[in-house]
């Protein structure tokens, strides 16, 4: 997998040098080995900080909203899941597609830092990645894990494949997920209403309204969020009471319903580890069930399920999927 990093770096250098692109959007090394962050690189010397490895989980597509507006082309590396967000943003006219040079890059799932910490790994010196397992080097010691143990939740169920790009860097076939994407949604649906209520009350009451989920979400790309807009009637900076959490998260999920590509960034960045993607996935599962399979971002033209209808759609009284 180390090879991918080299190829990506090589590609970035070449395209910068021959003037195809003016800058590169990628991941930058952090202090602790696992804390990579999205960054823009303007020159070969800048690119020294570039890295693509098992910690490059961040979805770069949202940064293109700003980057694609600027002079000259931008090179972006897109993992399979990122590319769905990219398409969706192109569909919504938020990215100037002509200004972007897309390079699809192989991804066998990224690691969840929270899970590593649970296993006692605080500092990462290096990582050796294979398709089905991974070895993390920490303070001179090697730890080997089966992927399922340490993958980000979003990666362990990822079925996304590489869409069309200007170029592709890929060496292996993508691993097939061993878990069902909707398993937990189904489990929740099978609970009684009381159990579900207790579950969500427990989860959502952890919310500190840091807005990380909103800030990272590629579908949350409004110029000004309704929660920041006094005229919306629901503006709030913090949760004044615990209902607000629900209001915030339901509305956020509703606003991205039919547009959410299930990239899972919301849950990845949540400092309180709230499984926010389960809200989005509920909408996705309902949409698939009621209106036919739909994957947002699969292309950049198809109308979303909430801006379309058929005359024979199910009635709201008959749509409940779960237990009572």
């Amino acid at each position: 997998m180390q090879k991918l990093n080299e190829l990506a770096l090589e590609k970035a250098k070449t395209l910068l040098a021959n003037g195809t692109v003016a800058r590169v959007l990628g991941w930058k090394k952090g202090e602790l080995g696992y804390d990579l962050e999205p960054a823009v690189f303007y020159s070969e010397s800048d690119l020294e900080g570039f890295i693509y490895n098992a910690f490059s989980g961040a979805n770069l597509s949202k940064y293109l909203i700003e980057e694609s507006k600027k002079e000259g082309k931008v090179l972006v590396f897109l993992k399979p899941c990122d590319s769905y967000s990219f398409n969706q943003l192109v569909k919504e006219h938020r990215i100037v597609k002509e200004n972007v040079y897309t390079v699809g890059i192989e991804c066998q799932g990224k690691l969840d830092v929270k899970k590593l910490k649970e296993k006692g790994i605080e500092i990462v010196d290096g990582v050796i990645e294979n398709v089905d397992d991974v070895t993390v080097i920490s303070l001179g010691k090697e730890y080997n894990f089966v992927k399922e143990e340490v993958l980000l939740g979003k990666c362990s169920v990822c079925e996304k494949h590489l869409l069309s790009y200007d170029e592709v860097i890929s060496l292996h076939d993508k691993r097939t997920p061993k878990l069902d994407r909707f398993e937990i949604v189904k489990k929740l649906e099978a609970m009684t209403a009381d159990e579900r209520y207790a579950f969500w009350k427990g989860e959502l009451s952890k919310c500190i309204r840091c807005n990380a989920c909103r800030n990272v979400c590629p579908a949350c790309n409004c110029l000004k969020c309704v929660f920041d807009n006094d005229a919306s009637g629901i503006a709030s900076k913090a949760n004044s009471d615990s209902f607000e959490e629900k209001l915030f998260h339901i509305i956020r999920a509703f606003h991205v319903a039919g547009r959410c590509t299930d990239c899972g960034e919301c849950s990845r960045v949540c400092p309180q580890a709230i499984p926010l993607h389960l809200l989005n996935r509920k909408f996705i599962s309902d949409i698939n069930r009621l209106y036919g399979e739909f994957q947002a971002g699969e292309d950049d033209v198809t109308k979303g399920p909430l801006t379309a209808y058929t005359t024979g759609d199910a009635e709201p009284s008959e749509v409940f999927g779960g237990n009572k």
């Binding site: 209520y197 629900k246 339901i250 709201p316 009284s317 409940f320 009572k324």
Partner: peptide
């Protein structure tokens, strides 16, 4: 009303998912 039907279907189903009594909402 076709758009409303889809929106309300999804919203009500979500409220149900959150454990709020489904009989409290109706179309």
């Amino acid at each position: 009303n076709y758009f409303a039907r889809r929106r309300m279907s999804l919203l009500f189903s979500m409220l149900d998912y959150l454990g709020i009594e489904r009989e409290r909402t109706r179309v």
